[in-house]
């Protein structure tokens, strides 16, 4: 099990900023399994997951100069990069398969820093619990959006639901997770 973000993350971030390539190895040893697990969950294809993880680590390497440890964890940053690249890939390759026409989405635009307000010592177990305690309909909706890259209209069509219901489940699901974690002191 990988460790939680801590001082070691800060140390790795500093090394990365200095351009010390060994820090990428440390980062990989610590979070490579988590990153690969996330990519594999999204892509369900070992080769594609491998490519995405490699690409994400190189992306972190390239952009490490901009990383500000006071604003969040290196782990969350890495995973955010993995997620976006995996979804990009999924949408890019899945497009031709799907009957429905996906609208082109500028994946990298329009998102506040996800790590800014997140405490560094979030515990994965509690986060998983927060996700699992959601009503099934909300959990499924988040799963389809986050791990499958579906838009709200695609989800509505697939589940044969009114669009408004899907929108509501997305927001409710996230808010319930947040409340659950807040009640346990995991998020501010």
């Amino acid at each position: 099990m990988s460790g939680e973000p801590d001082d070691r993350d800060g140390e790795m971030a500093a090394q990365l900023k200095r351009g010390e390539a060994t820090a990428i190895e440390s980062l990989y040893d610590r979070y490579g399994r988590l990153a690969y697990g996330l990519a594999l969950r999204i892509l369900n294809d070992r080769n594609a997951a491998e490519d995405v993880v490699q690409d994400a680590f190189l992306g972190v390497w390239r952009n490490a100069g901009s990383f500000d440890v006071s604003r969040g964890s290196l782990r969350n940053w890495l995973l955010s990069v993995v997620h976006h690249r995996a979804i990009d890939r999924l949408r890019g390759t899945a497009k031709t398969r799907r009957e429905a026409q996906l609208e082109s989405i500028e994946r990298t635009a329009g998102m506040p820093d996800p790590w800014e307000a997140v405490a560094l010592d979030l515990e994965r177990k509690q986060i998983l619990e927060a996700f699992q305690q959601l009503p099934e309909a909300q959990r499924l909706t988040l799963e389809l959006a986050y791990f499958r890259g579906y838009t709200h209209t695609e989800i509505a069509r697939q589940l044969n639901l009114p669009l408004g219901t899907v929108k509501g489940r997305m927001r409710m699901g996230l808010e319930k997770m947040r409340s659950f974690l807040q009640a346990r002191g995991v998020t501010p």
């Binding site: 490579g32 491998e50 995973l79 997770m177 974690l181």
Partner: peptide
């Protein structure tokens, strides 16, 4: 921003898998 922060936590709900 709050919702987005929560969204980012979804990345941590999966299993670790040993890469090739």
């Amino acid at each position: 921003a709050e919702l987005r922060t929560t969204q980012s936590l979804l990345a941590l709900t999966g299993d670790e898998v040993q890469p090739p």
